[in-house]
């Protein structure tokens, strides 16, 4: 019996159907309530906070200000510069991670001795706490004693006398580098998983048709990898737009590296401006949401198309 027929029969089995539906509601209710508590309540509470101001000058005083906190944020230079800087960071780091991660995945997919070990080792940076790796990078780029600067100076290469974390542009470059170092392996792992489901027959057929390695890569591997790459891109972009720990440790947001999350943190934690900070958090949340929706609308089609092609 198809579902359409089932629907058509509905009125006749009304009593039974209602009982069943009630049961269904009861069965689903616990998870719905849980979802509500875990997701909706905190977000709802943050929205509620963001519509108020809580006095930092007098105990227990608060007032409802409607959308004022949002309007203040959106008309401030601080929000838009953090917005621009976060997107610059996300664009640079995600694109580098995708290119490098894919390259790493292709290498790891080849057969050679010690492949299993290498696949594990490659993930090492991803396993290290971001704050710890950030402190390590900070030490390496330290102007007088840092490893990177000392080596560059020793070899007479440019860059040895640059205060990397103290200049706009260079500071962002170090933050991007630290992020790429850490998460390119994660992208590699996702892409590797994608590579492994491509059947060998496709390659054999291509070889029979006289396809070169490069054309095989462009016309076969890459299109079939698209879903995996898109998935990695979504994950990484969402993470990158929420970046906090790297700039917090490396520059404290100086020299054009303040991210949206850092701005919200400063208002909420350091300045205890609960309403204003919540508004910034919600704005950050909405930005990340909007970007993921765009991704899924565009790339979601890609994933489906790729899946259909495969069939």
């Amino acid at each position: 019996m198809t579902s359409a027929q089932k629907l058509a029969e509905r009125p006749r089995t009304f009593g039974y159907d209602r009982a069943e539906r009630r049961l269904a509601v009861r069965m689903v209710a616990p998870s719905l309530i849980l979802m509500f508590l875990v997701a909706a309540v905190p977000i709802g509470y943050a929205v509620w906070l963001s519509l108020h101001q809580y006095s930092v000058r007098q105990a227990g005083l608060s007032r409802f200000v409607g959308l004022d906190n949002y309007l203040d944020a959106l008309s401030s230079g601080a929000w838009w510069s953090a917005f621009g800087q976060t997107f610059t960071f996300a664009a640079a780091s995600v694109s580098l991670e995708l290119v490098l991660g894919t390259a790493m995945a292709l290498l790891l997919n080849m057969t050679f001795r010690g492949r299993g070990l290498l696949r594990t080792l490659v993930l090492l940076p991803y396993a290290i706490l971001t704050v710890v790796s950030a402190i390590t990078w900070q030490t390496m780029f330290e102007p007088t004693l840092g490893l990177v600067t000392t080596v560059l100076r020793g070899l007479g290469l440019p860059g040895g006398d640059i205060v990397w974390l103290g200049e706009s542009g260079y500071a962002m470059a170090v933050i991007v580098l630290a992020d790429v170092w850490k998460t390119a392996p994660f992208v590699a792992l996702l892409v590797l998983a994608g590579l492994q489901v491509i059947p060998d027959e496709v390659y054999e057929a291509a070889e029979l048709d006289g396809s070169t390695k490069w054309t095989t890569f462009i016309n076969i591997t890459l299109p079939l990898l698209k879903p995996a790459i898109v998935l990695a891109a979504i994950f990484r972009t969402m993470d990158a737009l929420r970046v906090f720990d790297l700039p917090f440790v490396l520059t404290r947001g100086a020299n054009g590296t303040e991210s949206m999350s850092m701005l919200a943190y400063t208002e909420l934690r350091e300045n205890r401006l609960v309403g204003e900070g919540s508004a910034l958090s919600i704005l950050t949340f909405l930005t990340v949401m909007a970007v993921s929706v765009i991704y899924i609308r565009f790339a979601g089609g890609n994933i489906r198309a790729a899946a259909q092609e495969k069939q």
Binding site: S55, R57, Q58, A59, L61, F64, V65
Partner: peptide
């Protein structure tokens, strides 16, 4: 009404502690 009420409650910020 609640919004107006709450806004009214806020009043002007006092510069001194209680």
């Amino acid at each position: 009404a609640m919004g107006v009420l709450l806004a009214g409650c806020g009043g002007s910020p006092a510069a001194t502690p209680n």
